[in-house]
Design a protein around this nucleic acid. Structure first.
Lengths: 163, 163
DNA sequence: GAATGATTGTTCAAATTCGAACGACCGGCT
DNA sequence: AGCCGGTCGTTCGAATTTGAACAATCATTC
């Protein structure tokens, strides 16, 4: 049974569930980060991305691309993180226009402190809701979607919290 | 290879891809709705949910629950839609506190006009990125996730645009 | 080496989001 | 009838997001 656009009920239902699941997971992650670390999800994302980069530093534009946020949005969040002392800005050596954001020692510490709780939540709410087969199938599906949407490997690279 | 929380690289990568895919899909949908219909995604959501309800009307709280938004967020969006003439508010007959939001004729028209494009985008960016098997597996996975996250059938029910 | 078009990052206004506080009302109880 | 904990929807302020505009710098071309 399809409607005008040829989308079946089942397809539409999957789409809606997909959106709903993403929304609720985001809400839960947001909530937990706020409660246990005083960070928003975007802020955690910035810290995590930086921690994954060589020397814990990245150009603003690279960071914006990877974190899937707009340039102005990133400016704002990095300003917040700088106020909190978790990130520092310094001029880029090779490009007079550029700014590199660097994790401070406090930034590393915050990440080491908050990552375990965060990852445990991801595990319990996301990974462990699925059987091994389901999880593998989900991986294949989102990989295919990511490819079609032009998500780069960079965007998606696993984040390793160094200690 | 796992980190402190016991989340493997592969699991983390799947999580990141899942978030990235959801983000990009949302951005594309948002963009298209804005361009072709002058609606935000939340606004479209409200119209679609109403269209799916008997008589095109729902109590505010029901609508907020289904649309996965906060009460105050819904108040704001319904106010915008009312300004645009797509939705009307009227008091609830059986509960003096209650407000029911109703689709106006213009609201029905807007939805009939914008749904085909929207659904075509969902089809091309979401459904058609996957093989039939992948799509079925994704459906099973998000259903399982939705169940574990407590998403009700209501929240997720397929939306039929009536004509 | 000057000119030109693109890129970098910030700033601004406008729109949107959330949670807390609020007044109004419901329903059950006495 | 009167009380009382709970629910309904709105409003408020604060935080955040977005795109457009901007000055500064780059890089390519002439």
């Amino acid at each position: 049974m399809t409607d005008g656009a040829g989308l079946s009920d089942r397809e539409l239902r999957t789409w809606r569930t997909f959106l709903g699941v993403a929304t609720v997971l985001n809400q839960q992650v947001e909530q937990q980060l706020k409660d246990t670390a005083g960070l928003s999800h975007p802020q955690y994302e910035v810290l995590a991305r930086l921690s994954n980069a060589p020397d814990g530093e990245l150009r603003m534009t690279e960071l914006a691309g990877i974190a899937l946020t707009s340039k102005s949005g990133l400016s704002y969040q990095v300003a917040q993180l700088e106020k909190a002392g978790l990130v520092q800005r310094r001029p880029c050596a090779t490009d007079e226009r550029g700014i590199v954001a660097v994790l401070t020692e406090a930034g590393w510490a915050k990440l080491r402190e908050s990552a375990p709780n965060h990852l445990a939540l991801v595990r319990s709410a996301f990974v462990e809701s699925l059987s091994a087969n389901e999880f593998a199938a989900l991986t294949a599906a989102v990989d295919a979607l990511g490819t079609h949407l032009g998500l780069t490997g960079e965007t998606v690279t696993a984040l390793r919290v160094q200690s």
